[in-house]
Structure formats: C-alpha cells, structure tokens
Write a protein that binds this DNA or RNA. Structure first.
Lengths: 240, 240
DNA sequence: CGCCTCATTGACCTAGTTCAATTTGGGTGG
DNA sequence: CCACCCAAATTGAACTAGGTCAATGAGGCG
C-alpha cells in the first residue's frame, strides 16, 4: 500500500523496519476518487493528510477568467497535502487527474509518530520541502524557459520522479494518462501551442507523448533541450 | 534583533515568553552582506539557517542564457534558508538585493529547540510552508496573470507581508529599494515592459513605485486589478 | 566634468494566443 | 455491424502581449 512512499523516502534516508511499521500502521482508510474529483478542497480545515497510492493528481486553482493553473503534479507515493499538517488547511484544491486511490494519515497520528521519533518528523518535513523545491523549479520553467523547453522539462521531471517509485520502463517509457490541456495548464501555455510543441519534440526525436504514454527517446538530449538539472529533486542519500 | 520574526510568528501562533527566549538565545552571530552579495550559495552543505533582520534578499537562479529568475523576495523577519534544515543544502542562491543583516541559527540549535518543544518545530515547519504557499501563488501569477496584474500582485503581497512586521506606513507606503530589473526578474518580464506597465499602474492611480518607495493609493482597487486574495499568506491566528 | 547605473521612450519583431475548422478514435445504442 | 456521438488532438490563419534593440534622460558621485 505505502510501498511507493517507502521507495521515495529510502532513496534519500535510511528507514528502520520500526519506522516503516510506524508509517504502515498509521495509515488505514483507503478512499477512491474518480477523474476530476476534488480530493482535498481549498480553504477547508483538514484533520488528516492523504497519500496518493495510485493515479495522478494535481494542485490547482481556478482564476476569474476561467483559466486553471496547475501548480504541481502528484504521483503515486506523494503525499498530496502533507503541508496541511503545519498549515491547517490548503490554499488550493487537490484534484484527481485520473482515477486516484488515496490512504489517509490523521494529523494526530503524525503528531504521535513525531513524538516517538523526531527523525521521522524531519523526514516528513523534508518531503514537504521537496514539493517547495519543485515549485521553485516550475517558477523557473514558467518564468524563463521557452515553450519547448518547458514541456521537455516536465517530461524529464516526471521521468526522474516516476523512476524513484519504479514506474519507468527500462527504455524510459512511462504511463502518463494526462490530457494535453493538463500539460498546458501546468506550464502556462495554451493547449493549441502545447500540441504544436509536442509535435516539434516528436519530430526532433526527443520524446513522444501519445495514447497516455510518454516515451523519452534520448534523455540526455531532452535534458539539454530543457536545461534540466536533477539536483532540485534531492535524489542523494543523506545521513540524519 | 529577532523582533520581526516574533511579530511574524505571533500573527499566527501564540508564543510563550519561554519560546521567545529559546529563539532569542539560539541566535547569536550577526553577519552583514553588501548588495549583490551571495548570502547562501547553491548546492553547498549548510549547517545553520539565516534570519534576515534587515534588508531585502531573494532566492534566484541563473539560466544558461544569462537570465536570472527570482523565486521569492525575502523581507526582514524571514528565514532565508530555514528549509536547509530538512534539505541539507539549497537548490538556489540567496542573494542580497540591498544591504542585508542576518543572524545565524545553527541546525544543531534548531534540533535542540524542537527536542525541548515540539510545538516550536511545527511553527518552524509552518514558516517553510508559508514560503511554499508564496511559491504557488507566484506560479499562478507568472503562469496566468497578465503583466499589469503580475506587478500589482507583487505590490499587494509585499504590502501585506511588510505590514505584518510593521514596515508599512499608515497610508500604505513602504520602503522598497529594488531596481525595476529585480521586479522584472521576479515576474518573468523584461525590464522594459515592467517599466511601461509600472507607468500604467501609476497613471491608473493605483500605485507608484519611485525612488525606492512603493505607495499604494487604492489598495482595494489594486487587489482587484491583481486578483489578489490574501488567504495564501495564512494571516489568521491559529491554535496549536 | 565625466562616468556609471538605472529609468524611460520609440520602433519594430516574434513567440505564443485566439478563433475556428477538421480529424481521430473510441464508445454506444439500435 | 454500422451510424452516430463525444472528447480530445490536430491544423490553419490572423492577431497581440510582451520582447528586442537602440537611443535618450536623469540623477549621483569621485
């Protein structure tokens, strides 16, 4: 159930079997959400955090003009709203972009876990700071990269993140059941322009996104096109 | 020394005198940085976090093409790199945009404080999540708002944040010693375009930015122009 | 005075948008 | 099996917000 979360954590920290048990036993209730359903609504007090175990979700808000801005794409193994623990509620919606399965972790249980093992608290804090780092990288993407590089960067990011949780094939191919409009709304582009630039990436032989699958044909070249530097994902193993 | 930090925290949480003493006594060394100096360099292990007590700093990276993207503007009372505590190092530089004064808080001291009072840990975690919330709002700004609204939004944000630490005059006027280029690099615009749109805001009678001072003539109208909603700043007092 | 940084303005250009039409590929009901 | 429908992808053509380039001001200061 929480194996993808454990993979994500173990990539960066050593986890004792005891830690794993604590996490495992703290998460109980499973909930499913259909596509487009709101998993966590904006501005409402939250008493628990949700771990995405299956499907793809996103953080997004709607603007007055009807535009949607997606601020992060959540993958299996991600807590979609761990930050509601320190914040109390969310400043944005979390929405299912595909069918999603989620397990709940009450804030009270988080509190208890941290009380028993402070290091676990620091690990959870780390996970939320990883989201913040991804936010910053997106700021660079949207603020400074041209359209092709934006799309390329997103595909690189998702490749690395999905790889951590074992969801990338040996030939850099991964399941990505998103609409082009989802990508457009993530990158501050229009669906039409996104479509054209996806075609360009395809014709350049860098990557293909079709039928809910992303295939990266030349990761190194794609990273160059994206000016991608994986360091913002903090993939190194660390002590403490 | 740390009074602005205390204001910032007290706006959201009750702080016991003991908590305040713990914070106060943990921060010792003061360091000054001239304009353009790097306060915390990217990708280098950090053993302490820095609290900005005076001046304005920013988180930024440089792209291959020589462009700079600013990801957050740090004000007095902000920790510029509290997230280095869980992360270990930063994915970006922290740079002084004006002369800055900083006090240091070692990670060991943070560790100790949290050990003594877990609630304080949650408060520090909150502070880092506030930064993340600001990042998300900037994503919306850069991804979806037109130029005038971007600038307006930034002036609203700075007004609210500076107000918390007592740096806004009664007539919504605050010291903001930034170049137009700093604003441009924060918003994903060019300095030229920023200049033109600043003129527009001035002519609309919404706000003036001249000689290092921002004057908001009509905050409500400026917020409307920016589609600004202060909720992302989590300004409410909360329990726990 | 001369220099330097930053703000301002004008003229032209382009990456990305907008609008609208067409295609594609499932489903689904008969 | 086929006609129809619908969501999403694709393409074309015209448009614009914002960018680029380059010149001019306007202060501050050694």
């Amino acid at each position: 159930m929480i194996d993808k979360l454990l993979l994500k954590i173990r990539k960066r920290f050593d986890l004792s079997p005891r830690n794993e048990d604590m996490l495992r036993s703290a998460m109980t209730e499973t909930v499913d959400f259909g596509r487009q359903k709101i998993i966590v609504p904006e501005n409402e007090p939250v008493g628990y955090s949700s771990l995405l175990v299956d499907g793809i979700a996103c953080r997004s808000t709607w603007l007055d003009n009807g535009e949607r801005q997606i601020m992060e794409i959540n993958l299996p193994g991600d807590f979609v709203d761990l930050h509601s623990y320190p914040l109390g509620w969310l400043d944005h919606d979390v929405t299912a972009l595909t069918h999603c399965r989620v397990v709940k972790l009450s804030h009270r249980a988080i509190e208890r876990m941290i009380e028993v093992d402070r290091r676990l608290g620091r690990i959870l804090w780390f996970l939320t700071m990883l989201d913040a780092s991804i936010h910053r990288e997106w700021l660079v993407t949207i603020g400074s990269r041209p359209a092709v590089a934006r799309i390329a960067h997103l595909f690189c990011e998702l490749c690395y993140r999905l790889n951590v949780v074992g969801l990338v094939d040996s030939d850099n191919r991964y399941h990505l059941p998103l609409r082009q409009a989802d990508i457009a709304d993530s990158l501050g582009l229009t669906p039409v322009h996104t479509n054209r630039k996806l075609k360009e990436l395809r014709e350049m032989g860098l990557c293909t996104f079709q039928d809910s699958w992303a295939r990266i044909h030349d990761l190194a070249a794609l990273e160059r096109a994206a000016t991608f530097d994986a360091r913002f994902l903090f993939l190194e193993k660390r002590t403490i």
